[in-house]
């Protein structure tokens, strides 16, 4: 570590303040641009398709495996206390409150967020955004708003599907494979999972994650250096930043909603 480390760190922090400001302006401008006459419902549908529907297969496979692993690991821990009847509850609560929203958001950042950054970055590099401005079409309304709202809309839906498939995967391991009683599995789950406390809590998390991942992805695309390397670097940064943001925000939300 050299003697310039601290001043350089200070400089980096100092520089990141206006960047955060610009990113916030992009977020608010983009969210607010739904009222703009260049906002298009069809573009929004396209983004829900691109971000949501195309991520569905990945989510289902990931959720299925996550649920099955939870079944095995939960059984391993609970069988020592003779409490395998709580396996259903354990799987459902883990997925609904934590793993569903977080894993959905992380996978979304990797699959859809990176694609968003690359797409917008290359639109910038090939002057498509500048051309749009020259044609008097606000990119906030035409490009940013449908993507932001698409992400905010798609992630909670992906999360619900993730939760359900995960619980089904957990059921397949717990009941037919490990021999936990099916009635106990569902009955315990039902009497310990609440709609508002657990299911909606998880969905609220998913909504926040959808917003922050899409925001970071769009921002990274917009602020990418308009070259091939610049777009590549921005894509990597987008996934790394979004993943860290999801985990950090998850801690805050969990503490708040606990």
């Amino acid at each position: 570590m050299n003697e310039f480390f601290i001043p350089r760190l200070g400089h980096t922090v100092w520089e990141s303040v206006p960047r955060l400001g610009a990113a916030t302006r992009l977020l608010l401008g983009g969210l607010g641009a739904v009222g703009n006459r260049h906002f298009s419902f069809r573009q929004w549908l396209r983004e829900v398709y691109g971000l949501g529907v195309l991520s569905l297969a990945l989510m289902i496979v990931a959720a299925f495996f996550t649920g099955m692993v939870l079944g095995f690991q939960g059984y391993y821990a609970l069988v020592r206390f003779g409490a395998t009847s709580a396996l259903g509850t354990l799987i459902a609560l883990s997925l609904l409150r934590e793993l569903g929203p977080v894993l959905t958001a992380l996978l979304f950042a990797g699959r859809a967020g990176s694609a968003l950054t690359a797409e917008i970055g290359s639109m910038k590099a090939t002057e498509q955004l500048a051309a749009m401005e020259m044609m008097a079409v606000n990119p906030l309304a035409w490009v940013v708003a449908p993507r932001l709202w698409g992400g905010i809309f798609a992630v909670p839906i992906l999360c619900v599907i993730f939760d359900l498939v995960g619980i089904f995967g957990g059921y397949l391991v717990s009941v037919p494979v490990l021999g936990v009683d099916g009635g106990t599995f569902w009955g315990q789950m039902q009497s310990n999972v609440t709609l508002s406390g657990d299911i909606l809590n998880g969905l609220l998390k998913a909504l926040c994650f959808g917003l922050i991942v899409t925001w970071i992805a769009v921002w990274q695309g917009f602020s990418a250096k308009p070259t091939a390397e610049g777009v590549g670097a921005a894509t990597t940064r987008s996934v790394v930043m979004a993943s860290l943001a999801v985990l950090g925000l998850d801690f805050i939300l969990t503490a708040l909603l606990f």
Partner: peptide, 15 residues
Amino acid sequence: RQQMGMLFQHSALFT
């Protein structure tokens, strides 16, 4: 700008 047109260096067609 609705009264202006611009041709960009890299054409900038929407891909």
